[in-house]
Nucleic acid binder design. Structure first.
Lengths: 126, 126
DNA sequence: ATATCATATAAACATATATTTATATGATTG
DNA sequence: CAATCATATAAATATATGTTTATATGATAT
């Protein structure tokens, strides 16, 4: 498959559009994305892989966590993603955001109380 | 599926990108597109249907012929198609164009000689 | 070191999409 | 009106994609 077709295929799935929308405000680890989407982790990893292969996302390893973010190094993809982001329907992605925020808040609370914490990068994501 | 995902899915197939490239210079009937792509007609009709459903193409009936053209009535699709057209790889689409031109020329010749003619709109397409 | 965690990957399965072949439809020509 | 043409659609099949469940890997914490 050529690059252009691959890019569009990557963007042709609702789950992946929701992921992109979640990443609008910064990088997130897989568990956060899974929490936001309310989906099992292997499913999320699968879709992250598709987006990464299409060079729409980049990842960064940090201990046992893998953080994903939008890859805007390519001009065309950047334009695409920008125009895409404002077109992603609000209803579903609003819920995703709520679930994500809930997960992030929950972790912050546990952090303060000294209890074990899921993902270390909460502070970076908003 | 939502509209955005449907648009991208329509653009996520090489055959359909080749069709869009062929239609860059104007409308064509199904038989011309099939000649350009060197593909059987039902296959081409299938892909035209996908593109039409995504509102990337429009059709126009004319006797027994059906003419397809790029639908640029929607601003977003228009931008998408524009930026897409210049990214479609040249090698394959060059051959498509050659085959199409050959088919159009052949018909023009038959037209002058009074022999039966395939598609009436050759003059409109370039 | 053992248990636990975050993630990736593989295997099995389900679903969607694309392709081929055959046929139907509606228009045109002889 | 019979034959032919351009196209669409349906049925059968092949292929690709997405989902689930189970397991592997590598890091961290106890």
């Amino acid at each position: 498959m050529n690059d252009l077709a691959r890019t569009f295929k990557a963007l042709s799935d609702e789950t992946r559009l929701r992921i992109i929308k979640l990443l609008e405000s910064g990088e997130l680890c897989v568990c956060d994305i899974a929490a936001g989407l309310d989906m099992v982790q292997p499913k999320v990893s699968f879709h992250l892989g598709v987006l990464k292969k299409a060079k729409l996302l980049k990842d960064r390893k940090d201990g046992k966590w893998m953080h994903y973010r939008i890859d805007d190094s390519d001009m065309f993809n950047r334009l695409l993603l920008l125009s895409v982001l404002e077109r992603i329907p609000g209803a579903e992605s609003g819920k995703d955001r709520e679930r994500l925020d809930l997960a992030l808040e929950g972790r912050a609370a546990r952090e303060c109380s000294g209890a074990p914490v899921c993902c270390p990068s909460a502070s970076e994501t908003r």
